[in-house]
């Protein structure tokens, strides 16, 4: 039952050498850009840029392949759901209807719908590579320092850092407790009736919650003893100063954001229309 997670591996590449703060800003602006634009040209360019970045970063396929399959599966489901619920969404957005073929009832396949769903797909393909890259190339212990650097209060940055530190511990606790419960005959699968199943789940959750509350007491007592929260700011062991490459990366992302917005909104619509209006 060992679950795979995306984890950071130390490698030598220009992407790994960038400071965490820059990567965080880059990823945030990149996501915002990809969220706003529905312009196919802009999305395609960003997608290609993402692939090039992946190549440069030298991350290994097997480090993220399992997530990729999962994402592709969910994306397929999502595409099907979009079509089932709204087969004419594309026609509504682009204002024309070029039917390719008809299936049954209100379900027909129009080029507008295909184009619209292609754009949704492309939107994910622009965000996902950057998200993966950010997770695979950023040292978790540098991440808290980065959050603080971009203006998040250091208390919240520290909370994030605690969360990342304790995920493996809590995963181990959870598995130990649920195996112990299963060994005692507590069943949480479909074989048990619903009422009993819920009661059994709480038999696993309660010890997990109580150990977690205990952990909160211990950790906060330790932090209190070290006068956490006394100062108004805090320094970080893992914080690094910005280098030339960092400023270059910032310039690139600002240029991408500006370029994409210009391309997207210069004709007054969020969508790029390839269909001719017949009015």
């Amino acid at each position: 039952m060992k679950a795979k997670m995306l984890t950071y591996t130390r490698l030598e590449s220009p992407i790994h050498r960038l400071t965490g703060a820059v990567k965080l800003i880059f990823f945030a602006l990149w996501s915002v850009t990809a969220m706003i634009t529905y312009d196919t040209r802009s999305l395609l360019a960003m997608f290609l840029f993402g692939l090039v970045m992946f190549k440069i970063s030298k991350v290994k396929f097997r480090d993220y392949s399992f997530v990729l399959y999962l994402i592709l599966f969910f994306m397929l489901l999502n595409q099907l759901a979009v079509y089932l619920f709204s087969p004419a969404e594309g026609v509504k957005i682009y204002g024309t209807s070029h039917e390719w073929f008809h299936i049954a009832g209100r379900y027909n396949v129009t080029w507008e719908q295909l184009f619209y769903q292609f754009n949704i797909l492309l939107k994910y393909f622009t965000v996902i590579p950057m998200a993966l890259l950010f997770l695979l190339t950023t040292d978790p212990s540098e991440f808290a320092a980065s959050l603080n650097r971009v203006g998040v209060s250091y208390r919240i940055a520290y909370a994030v850092s605690i969360a990342m530190r304790y995920i493996p511990d809590i995963q181990r606790d959870f598995h130990n407790i649920s195996f112990a419960a299963q060994a005692r005959g507590i069943d949480m699968s479909k074989k048990e009736k619903l009422g009993a199943r819920i009661k059994n789940v709480s038999a696993v959750l309660m010890p997990l919650i109580l150990t977690s509350l205990q952990r909160i007491e211990t950790v906060s007592a330790a932090m209190e003893l070290r006068a956490f929260g006394h100062g108004r700011t805090r320094t970080w062991y893992n914080a690094r100063p910005f280098g030339k490459a960092d400023f270059a990366a910032l310039a690139i992302i600002v240029a991408i954001l500006a370029g994409s917005m210009l391309l997207t909104f210069h004709d007054g619509s969020r969508f790029y229309n390839i269909f001719e209006r017949t009015e």
Partner: peptide, 10 residues
């Protein structure tokens, strides 16, 4: 702060 961290991990 600690409750947020541990709670988020849970």
């Amino acid at each position: 702060v600690v409750a947020i961290g541990i709670g988020a991990a849970l």
